[in-house]
Design a protein around this nucleic acid. Structure first.
Lengths: 134, 134
DNA sequence: CTGAGTGCAAACGTTTTGCACTTGC
DNA sequence: GCAAGTGCAAAACGTTTGCACTCAG
């Protein structure tokens, strides 16, 4: 993925710190602020938490990344992509994406509520395959 | 609803403050900490935020209430009940429950991911009927 | 060259803690 | 009577802000 282009497309200046943040997010899939700070410090030992927060907020405002609020956990951040849902393993805390078509759910809810729906935040919790085997 | 019984069933002592908190939650449907504090102060003018937090946490731990994390908003709390999903109006911030069967979604995700799913957190965002009319 | 980004320290709002006192059971 | 809950003040925590300096465009 070309992060320089990605930043420019979202009207954000390209800085080494931002490239590092995006690379880490992409590699990990989802990271919370603390995880991100620990990792980014390895590359930029003098980076400050303030800079991290400012960049996260700038990228959120420009919809370059999205925040995922998770029951009983800290928010995680991911590079914005097509709509999808999230799965959380309650044993090992694995957190993954799943692509699934939610049109029928949205249609049904739309019908019942008369809401015009535009966005969804879906997190399902359970036990992953590996943890079931234990 | 009998809140005294509800508290006892969840192994929590019955106090006037707790009864007040539960009554407010039930009447409003969902409240965030700040809203709850403003309202409960009208009944117990000397109640402290610490007490409110301690009670919210105690009730959460005993699954008497649940926390709903909402994108771009503060968490709200509601008295625990059968699984359901939430709708948020992005214009007027109305926040409502909807009962909808999510078995087919859960089955599909379960099949794809091999997760054993046990819990769901679903918030759909859009525009309510009244706001669409404006 | 100029506006935006960075890093630091201080401030801020929210939540938790410790403690003395009170209350439910 | 005793464990648990309450209210207060202080502390802890996560996040934001102001400012001087640096850097991207």
């Amino acid at each position: 993925m070309n992060y320089e282009l990605l930043l420019r497309e979202h009207k954000l200046k390209v800085t080494p710190q931002r490239l590092g943040i995006l690379t880490l997010m992409q590699n990990a899939g989802h990271l919370d602020v603390e995880e991100l700070f620990v990792l980014i410090k390895k590359q930029f030992s003098s980076i400050s938490l303030a800079t991290l927060y400012k960049n996260i907020n700038a990228m959120l405002e420009n919809s370059l990344i999205t925040e995922i609020k998770i029951p009983r956990h800290k928010s995680k951040y991911e590079i914005a992509k097509e709509p999808h849902i999230h799965l959380l393993c309650q044993k090992c805390n694995e957190f993954i994406d799943v692509s699934v078509n939610i049109d029928s759910l949205v249609d049904e809810v739309s019908m019942k509520s008369h809401y015009q729906l535009m966005d969804s935040s879906i997190v399902l919790c359970g036990v992953c395959e590996k943890c079931q085997a234990l």
